[in-house]
Design a protein around this nucleic acid. Sequence first.
DNA 1: GATTAGCACTCAAACACGATGAGTGCTAAC
DNA 2: GTTAGCACTCATCGTGTTTGAGTGCTAATC
Lengths: 343, 343
Amino acid sequence: MDLIDRKYRILQAIIDDYILTALPVGSRTISRKYEQKLSSATIRNEMSDLEELGYLDSPHTSAGRIPSNKAYRLYVDQMLRPMPLSAEETEFINRCFDRRLAQVDDLSMRIAKALSSMTHYTTAVMTRTPRNEQVLSHLQLVPVADRRVLLILVTQSGTVKQSVLELGSPVAPDELYTVSRILSSRLEGLRLIELPGALMQLAGSGETDEIVRAMAEQQPAESQSDIVALAIGGRSNLLSFPEYSDVDKAKALLSVLETREKVVSLLDHHGEMEISVRIGPETGLEETRDCSIVTASYRLSDGRVNTIGLIGPTRMQYGKVLSVLSQVGRSLGTILDEHDGHE
Amino acid sequence: MDLIDRKYRILQAIIDDYILTALPVGSRTISRKYEQKLSSATIRNEMSDLEELGYLDSPHTSAGRIPSNKAYRLYVDQMLRPMPLSAEETEFINRCFDRRLAQVDDLSMRIAKALSSMTHYTTAVMTRTPRNEQVLSHLQLVPVADRRVLLILVTQSGTVKQSVLELGSPVAPDELYTVSRILSSRLEGLRLIELPGALMQLAGSGETDEIVRAMAEQQPAESQSDIVALAIGGRSNLLSFPEYSDVDKAKALLSVLETREKVVSLLDHHGEMEISVRIGPETGLEETRDCSIVTASYRLSDGRVNTIGLIGPTRMQYGKVLSVLSQVGRSLGTILDEHDGHE
DNA sequence: GATTAGCACTCAAACACGATGAGTGCTAAC
DNA sequence: GTTAGCACTCATCGTGTTTGAGTGCTAATC
């Protein structure tokens, strides 16, 4: 459905204005601020058409019009002008990645905070580590208490997973080191999901039986699903939007952010796009039917997938958000290249 | 200042009622619901006295009275009746600690969520690991990339710290294992803050120079301050309280929860008490001047300090909160005894 | 002397009401 | 096709009124 040039421009003006003010926009406003050649009456006619076409809604008869989800869709897909970031903003983003990169979790939180302070939306950063792509690089058993042993698994991507094993009888520290060396050399290079099987096979081979069995028993439980790390920043930003001046709405949305599975489902978009914009019901949750979510996903070379998501009212500053996200993508790319380049 | 019995009872009734309803309570309410022997006029006289004594405030002339911070203080210190938990509640708390205990961080989050769902307040759990009490148990270097090495430090308490070392030139994996064994046996038993010094001394001893030096250089930066892990749950609960139906107030409080240092300062009370209740301005932050914070601290045998805090309006269900917290303390104690008992 | 009934008074909250003004749709003129 | 003009709608805002929960005070009662 092509919109003739003028309708198109008017629609764009309406969306721009509404995104800025959150107030229903009337014909007069457009005529004065955006299309000075046309009278408000003309605009009115066009707006009437646009409503009929499903691009505009009217909250009530005398209140101006607001863009529909369909309009936002069109806006995002076709109307968005590239909106370059200021030098300070680019600088700011780069500085976030500047320091010696600490644990991923920490970095995620830093990204989340930075993005929410730049955009004034709420940001969630998810790092998903698929179990079945993780390859064991090193294994270490460390005595903690008498019959309690800390098992440390290091994967080739440098991720560390730890868990505690309960043993039936005490084991001497020295023995643990020996077992660690043996197991480490035997199991190195296996994918994590293959561990339980491999351990079971080794289990019959001698005195270290019990440790191996304990490991074999514990692993399956943990290898079920991917490891997902979440960091969320800028929750309080939500409360600045007039759409959440109703406390109940704000509460509902905050509750969603407190439910891990819901946040994951919001970030896990199934499309193929690197950057995706989902508007209103497209977000997939009832509670977010008048939110929009913009996500960007990056697949790291070690198989991990990083997803950054911003959430806000459907009246979102898509232009700004998309520019910021793609700049972050570029910066992140640089970092990761540096990091993995020499492998 | 002793209050004669009747005044005391009336004050208690007022506080109880206000905590329940959040509405200023009038003389008639007390006369009907709490002190049926007395007429509202009598209550009025008593209330007038109580106001003069500083235990009650009146929002305006014809609106009943609300307890002052001084009243809450008295309430917490002297009026609180022990309020045993129901069987289900105790059960619920125990279940939280039931499963195989995963990483501390995860446990913290579980505690935070559980407490906030039980009490309907917001919960923060802080685990502070003092650098200078941490003793090295094991050290391992793991190759990640060509000139990038993952350093894993395991302390005697079972905590794992990891960091990435940048080397000037590549090192063979086999060499890393050898170095790990040597360093591990040499450094074991040292406190973490002693590491840089010890490493410096070792640095002259041979070909492994570079690795040791890299470690020595990195450690000081990290050993500056304690490690503090934070988990916060139940933020959205705040929005259920009528005192936060004003979005701006809610936003201000949520912002505090987003500022790590502020949360830490709220949880880090300097008193000696295991359980502390701070009311209004006693919380120490301007932003929380009409909140109360109840914290419970537990010093673990390995030197870590665990602090659990609940935050809500000064009109807080102190009885319930204190019972829940002390039950959690008991459960946590059991867990930790099990955990450390055999050492 | 403590308690209570009674009464005048206060004040926030709720409600009704009209004025205001931003907006629309329609029609007729340009 | 565009625009001026006009009748109409409706949320918002200020105003005034009512209502009711509350107080303080005084005088009568126990």
